[in-house]
Amino acid sequence: MLTINNLQKVYNGTTVVNVPALNIAAGESVGLVGNNGAGKTTLFRMILDLIRPSKGEVLSMDANVMQSDDWKVYTGSYLDEGFLIDYLTTEEYFKFIGDLHGLTDGDITERLLPFMDLFNDEILNQRKYIRDYSKGNQKKIGVAAAALSNPELLILDEPFANLDPSSQIRLKNLLKNLRENNGMTMLISSHDLSHVIDVCERIIILEKGQVVQDMRTTENTLRELETYFTV
């Protein structure tokens, strides 16, 4: 699904990301963990063609993301509020995203059904603009919009941050369902170790832009991660 070859990003002489090789197979769900400044978001931005790599390439389904736009058809993503068109209402925003993917109003309603628990009656029919929602609710809107097109690849940056505990658990179950029922490939970064282990079958630890560990999730993973991050 995703192949990263010799990818590097250098800012003023500091290497922020340096990934010689990384493969993510279709249907795999990968969790990316690492402390602040490890380069998680920068890596995501290069995968989404938002930052020009200093070196190397990202291939999505064997096509370089910089040269072809095809990946946009099957990739859903939400990194931060910069992805939301914040002067629209939630409905208008979902409609806009749906239209780009050729979804009818009925499709959109249907695709949002699994999100109703997560939305907790605070998202739809609110008669206000997205910019006036709280951070947590904005995140819910962004994640739902990313999953709206039922993408083959879903990329989320810290989806659990800013959410209340109930919402975190609901989102976790939702992501698991999406993976199991739709076979979605996922790339999720998180600071919440237990959630990300629950959702992902493979964990990658990033430190100073480098992949330092790449492992399958087992019952021991949480302990290993905690040992790793205990300084």
């Binding site: 989404l48 990739t75 993503s77 931060d80 910069g82 992805f83 780009l100 993917h101």
Partner: peptide, 13 residues
């Protein structure tokens, strides 16, 4: 500018 990243990742040529 506030939602530029969002536009770039959408299917808009």
């Amino acid at each position: 500018s506030a939602h530029f990243d969002g536009l770039l990742t959408q299917r808009i040529s």
